[in-house]
Design a protein around this nucleic acid. Sequence first.
DNA 1: TTGTATGCGTTATCAG
DNA 2: CTGATAACGCATACAA
Lengths: 357, 357
Amino acid sequence: MKKNATIATVAAAAGVAVSTVSRYLNGHYVSQPVRARLGEVIETLGYSRSWTARNLSLGRRGCIAVVVDSSADPWFVQLLTGIEEELSARDTGLMLASLELRGTYDPGLVLEWVHARRVDGIITAKSQRRERPLFRACAEARLPTIAVVPDEAPPGAHVVSCDNVAAGIAVARHLTTLGHSRIAFAGGPAHSLDSRHRLRGVQIGLSEAGVGLSPARTYSCGSWDTPAGEAFAERWLDGPRDATAVVLANDALAFGFLRVAQQRGLRMPADLSIVGFDGLPQGELFLPALTTMAQPIREMGRAACRTLFASIESSGQVGRTVFPMHLLVRESTSLPPDGISLCEVSVDTQVIRSVQA
Amino acid sequence: MKKNATIATVAAAAGVAVSTVSRYLNGHYVSQPVRARLGEVIETLGYSRSWTARNLSLGRRGCIAVVVDSSADPWFVQLLTGIEEELSARDTGLMLASLELRGTYDPGLVLEWVHARRVDGIITAKSQRRERPLFRACAEARLPTIAVVPDEAPPGAHVVSCDNVAAGIAVARHLTTLGHSRIAFAGGPAHSLDSRHRLRGVQIGLSEAGVGLSPARTYSCGSWDTPAGEAFAERWLDGPRDATAVVLANDALAFGFLRVAQQRGLRMPADLSIVGFDGLPQGELFLPALTTMAQPIREMGRAACRTLFASIESSGQVGRTVFPMHLLVRESTSLPPDGISLCEVSVDTQVIRSVQA
DNA sequence: TTGTATGCGTTATCAG
DNA sequence: CTGATAACGCATACAA
C-alpha cells in the first residue's frame, strides 16, 4: 500500500500546481476544465486532505473546549448533543473538561488549555461565580468564549440563556388556570440568577391572577441537585404544607421532591401538583411524569456552537442569545384537591374530630 | 502583545538550537546546565508548544473518535466520563459521533472520518450488527479500534466487556436467597450476546438453587430502551403473572417496567421484585430505587481509552478485557409476598369473595 | 487564471 | 551532547 496521497500527489497527477489544488479544495476560483480534472483525480486517488496540516497553516487548533461541572449531568448531555451536531458539520473536535471530574473542583486543566491556546474557543455550561478566574483567563488570552446559562453574567463572554422570567410567568398561569391559589416555590442556589428570575416570573404571573406568592412560601434548596430536592421535601412536608402546588426551580430538584413526597404517601397530582424547569427527558419516566418548563437545550447547544465559530472566524461581538422556554404538561399537575387546599383539609379533619368527640 | 513564543523564540533566547529545545521538551538527553537554562527561559517566556505542529510532525491527528447510537444515552454518558478522564491526561481531543443524531441511522460521517484518517483511533460503544461495515472500514484503514460491549464480536477490534454470565448468576443467587422461586426474565434485542449471556447466567444460578427458569417465563423485549420495557410490562401484567420477581436485561427496560407496573397499582417490591442490569445512577431516583447489577462503566471507559492508546503507539494486539459486574441492592427487591405468588393471591381473593357471597 | 515560493511550529536525521 | 536542516501537508501572498 503506497503512502497516503497528499495535495502534491494530486497536483502532480493532474499536471497542475499545488496552489491550484488548494484553491480547488477551498472553493476558490479554478477554471472549469481544471476543476473537472481535479475532481476526477481526487476521486481516483482517494485523496482527502490533512486537517492537521490545514490547521497548522491556518493557525487554528481545530478543536474547542467544552467545560461543565460534570459531563454526566443530564442537562449537559442534551446540550452536548446540540454541540456535537454543529461540530460534526464543521469537522472540528472537542476537548471535554469536567471541573469536578475527580470529585473536587479543579479548573487547572482548562486554565492550562486556554493559556496554551490548546483550543480555538470555549463553551462553558452552567458556570458559577467560582469560574470568574477562568473567564478572566479567557479574556486575557482573547479566546472566544460562550457561556451557556451562567449563574452570573461572565465578563467578556457571549451568553446563551433562556427567558426565565417568562418561564416563571407561564408556570404561574398554568397553575392558576388549573385553580391553584396557594403555591410554593423552591429555588436553587441562593445567588443563582436563573433561580431568581424564575421566582420573579412566578411572582409576576401569580399577581396577574391576583393570588400573589407569599414570601412564607418561597424557599431555597441551596443547590441544583436531586439530594437538595429530597432534603427540601423532608423539610416542607414536615411543615404546614400550606400549598396545593410546589414549583421547584429545576427538574433535578423536582425529581428528589417527587421521590420523597411519594415515599411519604402523597399522591401526585391528586394531593399536590409539582412543576419543574428544564424539560429533562428523564422526567418522562417518573410516575407521575413531571410537568416542566422545557428549555430547547439542544438548540441552545447548536446556537452556542454557531456563535462560537462566528466569533472565532471574525472575532464577533459578545452579546446575548435568549431562548424561550415552553410548558411541557405531563402528569404531575392537575386541579387542586377538590378546590380545597391541604391546609383546609386538615382543619376540616379537626372539625370532624371535634364533632365526633 | 508580541506574537506567541515558538520553539525558535525559546532557542534564540537560550542561545541554543531548536533541536535542543525539542529534545528538552520531549525528555530526551540534554546536559544539566542547558536543561536548567531552558527551564527558566520557557518559564519567563510563557512558552507552550503547539500541539497542531507537533501532531503534524508526528503524523498524528491528536484526536480520537467516539461513536455510539446516541450520546444522550445515560449509559454512554458514564462511559464518556471515563474516556474524558483518560483523554485529558493525554491531552488529546475527541470527535463525538451519534449514529442516530438526526433521527435515522447514518454511519456516513464516521466512515468518512476513518477513510480520511481524521482520527488516530476509534472507540465504539454498544455496537450492533449493522456496524459491521464500519468495523470493516476501520480494519482496512488499519485504524486502532476498541469496541465497548458490542452486541456481537466485531472482527479486528479489541473488545471491552463485562462478565454477563457471572452477573446473571449473581442476580439469580440474590433472588433465590430472598426466597424467590418463580422468576421471569425479559431479554433485550433477540440477537444481543449480552442479553443472552445474562439470561444464561440467570438460568445457571437458578438451577444451582434447584429452582430452574421456565422457558415460559423468559421473554424478549426486542430492544434495549424504556418504551420496550413499558410494552413488555403491559404484556406481562396482562398475562398469568406467575412470577414473584422479574429480571429485566437492562436498567432502561426496568425503568419502563417499573413505571407501568406502578401505574397498574402493583407495589414493588412487596408484590413483585425487580432487577435490572447496568447500574445507572438514575435507578437511584425511582421509588423503589432499582436493584441492579452494576457495570464499572467509568472504569471501562478508561480501559477502552488506555487500550486504544497502547494500540496507537505500538499497534498492540486485539484482545479482550472483561470486567466483573457487582450487585447493587437498592429497594426494588425483597422477600416474595408471604411466600405466595401473585397467582395464588388472586386465587385467594376469589375464595374470599365466594365465602362472602 | 495559474504557478512559485515561503511560512506554520515541531520532530527527526545526521553530521559535528 | 548539540546544531543544522529536511520533512510534515497545506495555504497564501506575489508574480506571471
